[in-house]
Design a protein around this nucleic acid. Sequence first.
DNA 1: TGATCATATTGAATGAAATCGATATGAGGT
DNA 2: ACCTCATATCGATTTCATTCAATATGATCA
Lengths: 98, 98
Amino acid sequence: MQNEYSEYAKVFKAFCDETRLMVLSLLQSGEKCACVLLEKVNVGQPTLSHHMKILVDSGVVYARKQGKWTHYSLNKEILVDLDDYIEKLICCENHEKL
Amino acid sequence: MQNEYSEYAKVFKAFCDETRLMVLSLLQSGEKCACVLLEKVNVGQPTLSHHMKILVDSGVVYARKQGKWTHYSLNKEILVDLDDYIEKLICCENHEKL
DNA sequence: TGATCATATTGAATGAAATCGATATGAGGT
DNA sequence: ACCTCATATCGATTTCATTCAATATGATCA
């Protein structure tokens, strides 16, 4: 099974972990650098870095390097796609292939 | 960290697996019994049953028993909640706590 | 009540994810 | 060149998920 579902499954994986959900929520108010995120989240620095990698690889978050810092922000386009995906599920029995 | 994020993380976990995404897509056109789902999905019967349990426990899918059969359908209310959750992330820097 | 069918559960194996301490990288400042 | 700071990677450990074969449950039917 190597289809479009595995693509979406990968994106949804970004949302499967509470630390990552918290990061996404923090990014909702705008771009943040890793050190700011680290203050708010209850994990160590290597663990946060691991989660940020998952978020970036899934496409949900952008990384922008500037000097020593890495600034993260939401990729709102992919969030709109996810929103559409879920809306199609909600939309009343229209028999359209997802 | 035992907060609202872990609640949503559990719901999003339903979407993390391609087999489960395929099931959700199949349910989009209406209620289906497990035997119908089993025909379409590339896993064995116990594995499908395991996935259906995850979907039901997360609240994304309803199970209705009728005689020998179990009929599954989407819980559209929780899908609307997810939709709202993602929309709040998209919505432009409004500083509202998620 | 015994057979059959649909589904659930159990137990075991294998694989993936989360976490952390230690260390590496690489930019800036002295 | 050296030191420091921010972040990334590595290696190991532990925990969690996926899968299947085997078996259990429980409804229907002969």
